[in-house]
């Protein structure tokens, strides 16, 4: 049964301040629910850099290689095409398709990668059960401390959060399946 504490803040600076202080106290399983992404919050949470760029690079290289291979297979090998006496395998002419397939697959990797890594198209998450969490998609900034955190203790953590004057603190203790 997932447990977590959620604290609502009025702005990203307040949230970042709290997150930074809690991390210094030894909290590790922190996350934020905010209406938009801010550098201060990302920094305070100490999030690692996304692995997405590497995946996009691999996608681009694979796309380019597939396109070049296909062009070679079709017009260079299986059905050699004589265009004005040029050799069938003409790298210069293959470049535009290679480039565009590279860009296409890189873009697909980026688009679907964001969906997958962002865990999007997930219809229900326990956090939705918390009272008032809707404001995270309007104008409020929520800090989440996961129950798996080594320092997590409902009472003490609530008290430690209180020092940063959150607008409210909600404890979520799990719910029956939706």
């Amino acid at each position: 049964m997932p447990r977590m504490l959620l604290a609502e803040f009025s702005g990203p600076t307040e949230l970042a301040e709290a997150a930074r202080a809690l991390r210094e106290q030894g909290y590790r399983e922190l996350d934020a629910h905010t209406p938009y992404s801010t550098e201060a919050v990302r920094e305070a949470l100490g999030l690692p850099r996304s692995r997405l760029p590497f995946a996009i690079f691999v996608g681009g290289v694979v796309g380019a290689a597939l396109a070049y291979g296909l062009e070679w297979l079709l017009v260079g090998y299986l059905y050699p095409l004589d265009v004005g006496g040029r050799p069938p395998h003409m790298p210069l002419a293959f470049v535009p398709i290679t480039f565009e397939m590279g860009v296409l697959l890189a873009s697909f990797t980026a688009f679907f990668g964001v969906l997958v890594l962002g865990r999007l198209v997930k219809l229900w998450d326990p956090v939705f059960e918390v009272d008032g969490i809707e404001s995270a998609s309007v104008d409020r900034f929520w800090l989440r401390i996961d129950g798996n955190d080594p320092r997590f203790d409902p009472e003490r953590t609530r008290e430690e959060l209180g020092r940063f004057r959150p607008l409210r603190v909600e404890l979520y203790e799990g719910s029956p399946s939706p």
Binding site: A93, V95, P96
Partner: peptide, 12 residues
């Protein structure tokens, strides 16, 4: 550089 050589190569 690429498009200069590609266009010249295509027109021949």
């Amino acid at each position: 550089a690429f498009f200069q050589v590609l266009l010249i190569q295509i027109a021949n």
